[in-house]
Deep mutational scan, measured.
Amino acid sequence: HSHMSHTQVIELERKFSHQKYLSAPERAHLAKNLKLTETQVKIWFQNRRYKTKRKQLSSEL
């Protein structure tokens, strides 16, 4: 499990705020920019979407 830097997370968050789903080319581009693997980016987005979904569910209770 590799640790992401604060800067990388900020960039991922910024991208996520604009779009929740990335196409393969977008993911490849973002990964390259942030010096991450595409898998890391993919998993981060999956986890981030899951967290957002959970938060929405709990706020509706």
Rank of each mutant, 00 (worst) to 15 (best):
T37Y: 02
K35W: 04
Y50F: 09
E13F: 07
A31D: 00
I43V: 08
K20H: 08
E38M: 05
V9H: 11
H6E: 08
T39G: 07
Y50A: 14
S17K: 12
N33Y: 13
E60P: 06
T37I: 02
E60F: 07
A31G: 02
K15R: 14
R14N: 06
S2N: 10
K42H: 08
K20F: 04
T37R: 02
S5K: 03
L22W: 03
L30T: 01
H3P: 09
S58N: 13
V9Y: 09
Q40F: 06
N47C: 15
H29A: 12
H1R: 09
L57E: 12
L12R: 01
S58F: 10
I43N: 08
K15I: 15
T7R: 10
S23F: 03
T52G: 10
Y50G: 10
L57S: 11
L30Y: 00
N33P: 00
F16T: 02
L61P: 09
H3N: 11
Q40I: 05
A24N: 07
F16A: 03
V41G: 00
T52M: 14
Q8R: 04
N33M: 15
A31P: 01
K35M: 11
T52P: 12
A28K: 10
A28S: 08
R48T: 04
S58Q: 12
L57N: 13
A28E: 07
Q46W: 09
I43Y: 09
H1T: 10
A28I: 09
K55M: 12
K53F: 07
R49C: 06
H3G: 08
V9M: 15
R27H: 02
W44I: 02
N33K: 12
I43A: 06
V9S: 05
R14E: 05
K15P: 00
K15Q: 10
R14M: 08
A28M: 07
K32C: 07
K35Y: 08
S2Q: 12
E38N: 06
T7K: 14
K32A: 11
N47R: 15
S59R: 05
H6D: 09
S17T: 08
T39D: 10
R14V: 06
T39R: 12
R14P: 02
E13I: 08
T7H: 12
H6G: 05
M4V: 05
R49S: 02
N33A: 15
L57I: 11
R49E: 03
A24G: 10
K55V: 10
T39K: 09
R49Q: 03
K35T: 05
Q46E: 11
R48D: 00
Q56L: 14
Y21L: 03
P25A: 15
L36Q: 00
Y21W: 11
T52K: 09
K55W: 06
M4G: 01
S23D: 03
V9N: 04
R27Q: 07
S59C: 15
H18N: 07
S59N: 14
F16L: 02
L61Y: 07
K35Q: 12
H3D: 08
E26L: 04
V9I: 14
R49P: 00
K53W: 07
Q40H: 02
L34W: 01
T39S: 08
T52R: 10
Q8C: 14
A24C: 07
P25L: 14
Y21S: 05
E38D: 09
I43F: 07
S17C: 15
L36S: 00
N47K: 14
H18Y: 12
H1K: 13
K53A: 12
K51V: 08
L61W: 03
S2C: 15
L22H: 01
I43C: 13
W44R: 01
M4I: 10
S59K: 13
L34V: 03
N47W: 15
Q40E: 07
S23Q: 03
S2T: 12
R27G: 03
L12C: 05
K42R: 15
H29D: 10
K15A: 15
K53M: 11
K53C: 15
Q46G: 04
S5R: 07
Q40P: 00
E11W: 06
V41P: 00
S17L: 10
E11S: 06
K53V: 07
E26F: 02
Y21H: 06
K51S: 09
V41K: 01
E13A: 04
A28G: 04
K32Q: 09
K51P: 06
L30S: 00
H6C: 15
L30Q: 01
K32F: 09
A31C: 04
A24Y: 13
